[in-house]
Design a protein around this nucleic acid. Structure first.
Length: 442
RNA sequence: GUGAUUGUAGCUCAGUUGGUUAGAGCGCUAGUUUGUGGCACUAGAGGUCGCCGGUUCGAACCCGGUCUUUCACCCCA
């Protein structure tokens, strides 16, 4: 029995997750990101209000214990809600921002950190959605240069290349959304504008317009409409956007930054990766202010497997103004699901034993114990069967555990200082001197 | 939060218009076989039919509630 939306991770899962984490970590570290961890529990006041209304609803709150809980027996729901002191972290970015401010005397800017930990959301579970899941985040805080966006895009590119997973990376900029809203004469309804636009994929253009109409947003001119519905590369889309938005002041920052990004990436392209401008990409988190990214796997049925963006003033709410940050996240659980769907895991990634020592009597087990130590010192994964059971049972265990080699020890072998070596895949078997055993595994 | 959907042995599932002691396959344990794996045969263990309540002489089956599973929406990794 488990709480909903949670899972046990068996050795097979762990092997796959290690494989993914290994690839991502390697790329993070090549880009000089350093690992940190933060506590699973944060103060409620640190987290609440940072993720919008929806986020607050989905946050796991921690009840107080003992006296305090007793004293709440007759309090109103409102009182309880506003006096909860602790909560489980909902993402890794806000706790990171909190940490940057708390630890400002112990870090150097620009600070590049990565973090691979669980987060919790009290969502209704469904495909690829859990209530406990693992995020792999990389963020930079400090001097704000677009080269950092380019670097993070390269991290996505290199990681998914490493995993052999084909992806599409969609890109947008908050300031372009603002500009487009201005064009639609809906600057004051930016949220409704972007939420509507975000649904383009699902409800189509008519659906978007219907939603906008309800929110009191006017119809756009046909050229802008067309622009909104096309996804394309930076090279294709940027000139069109510049033309359409040239007189819109709020869009200038986005145009300038995407131009910069375009020239950086031109010198070091993301080959075989689809990097597309998608103006309908909104992303919910309220704190993004610049570029926003979202990654989805090609050929698999799954929501986004990664996302991120630029936030100009995330640490402001914790008392450090005007510190810019940009970050990305990998969804470990969804990447695992997608790679399973596409059958992308190499066959041999488990770490089960390579050799099993089986034996007929207790005295032989001592020989097995000693020989196992010798093979282990050569780097082999060895297991000694824990009891002198029937040979059939011991072999059966080896086969089911996918252990390829078996060493059999009995009275005969012990007397002659020998072992019987058996290859369980081929059935090949040989009785050899104990001192020659290592040669079988060169 | 909204709308569907699921729940019977460790697993996958049968279970007749409501009727005695709820079944199968696989798996598990032991044996046939006291030093050799995929097979066969024999025996065995294992179930408050998700939970609570109701209807009925009688409920795995009908009704209500609740929890859970899976899926879509919302939102997101």
């Amino acid at each position: 029995m488990l709480p909903k939306g949670t899972r046990d991770l068996l050795p097979d899962d762990m092997a796959k997750r290690k494989y993914i984490v290994h690839a991502i970590t390697k790329v993070f570290e090549q880009h000089a990101f350093q690992q940190i961890e933060t506590p699973a529990i944060e103060l409620n006041k640190t987290l609440s209000g940072k993720y919008g209304e929806e986020g607050d609803r989905l946050m796991f709150k921690v009840l107080p214990r003992g006296e305090k809980l007793n004293s709440w027996a007759n309090q109103s729901l409102e009182y309880i809600k506003s006096n909860i002191e602790e909560a489980l972290r909902y993402d890794l970015t806000v706790p990171f921002a909190r940490m940057v401010v708390d630890q400002r005397n112990n870090i150097n800017l620009p600070f590049k950190r990565y973090q691979i930990q669980n987060v919790w959301r009290a969502d209704r579970p469904q495909k690829g959605r859990f209530r406990e899941f693992t995020q792999c985040d990389a963020d930079v805080v400090g001097p704000a240069g677009i080269i950092q966006e380019a670097e993070l895009l390269h991290i996505y590119y290199r990681s998914f290349q490493e995993l052999n997973l084909p992806v599409e990376i969609r890109l947008n900029h908050r300031s372009l959304l603002q500009g487009l809203a201005e064009l639609a004469d809906a600057s004051d309804k930016l949220t409704a504008f972007t939420i509507g636009l975000d649904k383009l994929d699902k409800v189509g253009w008519d659906g978007v317009e219907k939603e906008w109409k309800l929110a009191g947003i006017n119809e756009l001119n046909p050229e802008v409409k067309k622009l909104l519905q096309t996804k394309g590369t930076l090279e294709q889309q940027l000139p069109l956007l510049e033309e359409a938005l040239k007189s819109v002041s709020s869009a200038q920052r986005g145009l300038a930054e995407l131009n910069q990004l375009k020239s950086i990436l031109a010198s070091s392209p993301l080959e075989n990766t689809n990097l597309l401008i998608d103006l309908s990409l909104a992303r919910g988190l309220n704190y993004y202010t610049g570029c926003i990214f979202e990654v989805s796997a090609l050929g698999a049925e799954m929501g986004s497997i990664g996302g991120g963006g630029r936030y100009d003033d995330l640490t402001g709410i914790f008392g450090w103004k005007d510190l810019s940050g940009v970050g990305i996240s990998f969804g470990l659980d969804r990447i695992q699901l997608v790679m399973d769907q596409l059958d992308l895991f190499p066959k041999e990634i488990g770490l089960n034993a390579e050799v099993l020592f089986a034996y007929m009597d207790e005295e032989s087990s001592l020989v097995g114990f000693k020989l196992a130590q010798e093979l282990r010192s050569l780097g082999m994964r060895c297991e000694v069967y824990p009891a002198a059971a029937k040979m059939k049972k011991q072999i059966d265990f080896a086969v089911k555990s996918k252990i390829p080699f078996l060493i059999i020890l009995g009275e005969k072998e012990r007397m002659n200082k020998q072992v019987t070596w058996r290859n369980l895949e081929t059935g090949e078997q040989e009785t050899i001197s104990q001192t020659d055993l290592y040669k079988k595994f060169d």
